[in-house]
Design a protein around this nucleic acid. Structure first.
Lengths: 116, 116
DNA sequence: GTGATAAGTTAGCAA
DNA sequence: TTGCTAACTTATCAC
């Protein structure tokens, strides 16, 4: 079993590799063989991509939730306004009724007034 | 370049492999070495999964579109009902006004009636 | 070269 | 076993 590689910077953990600043990364890369350099950069890119993908999923889910919430709010609004509408209709009918009665009443008053 | 494998059924196209009935698939599998058998089954599973994944994405997109359309419809409804509401309010105010006038008018009639 | 996203692969759940 | 979906990988695009 031959020594696989120099292992100077290849045994770094995912988390650490991910958090590494560009500056520190370059420092690390310089100490590696060209092959390991490529390998390490590739690994970092994959890790980054994993994060992006997770981010993308989260975003998709929250957007969907927002849509659902907006929809629910609108449904509530519709109900509220429709109810308001019904109330107005009732009041309108009621006052129409009273108006009609008052019309009849004043017609009688007017007629009586002529008999004087 | 040695002959890679018996190639009796391994050179089947993706589409064909995917469409194969279970019966025909089994028939085909029987003519293969255990190794190729496993390989072919695996390939079919992967192809199937590819389809499932596409299906899943399509479904997700259409669900989102449905949500958006429902939301738009609700927005239109809210506008329509709110407008209706405004109309009712105007009519209510108008009739209230007329009612008040009629009240005053009949009050005068009544008063005049007493002077007879 | 970094972040986002569509498409493909893998793992694992459920019927 | 089949279909679905979350997570991961890869390819590709925009900045």
């Amino acid at each position: 079993m031959p020594p696989k590689n120099s292992n100077s910077g290849m045994n770094i953990g995912d988390e650490a590799l991910l958090q590494l600043s560009v500056k520190d990364l370059n420092k690390l890369l310089k100490s590696l063989s060209p092959e390991d350099r490529t390998k390490l950069k590739r690994r970092r890119r994959v890790l980054k991509n994993r994060g992006y993908a997770a981010n993308c999923r989260t975003k998709r889910m929250s957007q969907k939730e927002i849509l659902q919430m907006e929809k629910e709010k609108l449904e509530k609004d519709v109900n509220k306004i429709a109810h308001n509408n019904d109330m107005l209709k009732l009041r309108l009918e009621s006052i129409k009724e009273r108006f009609k009665d008052l019309q009849q009443y004043s017609a009688i008053l007017k007629k009586n007034g002529k008999n004087e």
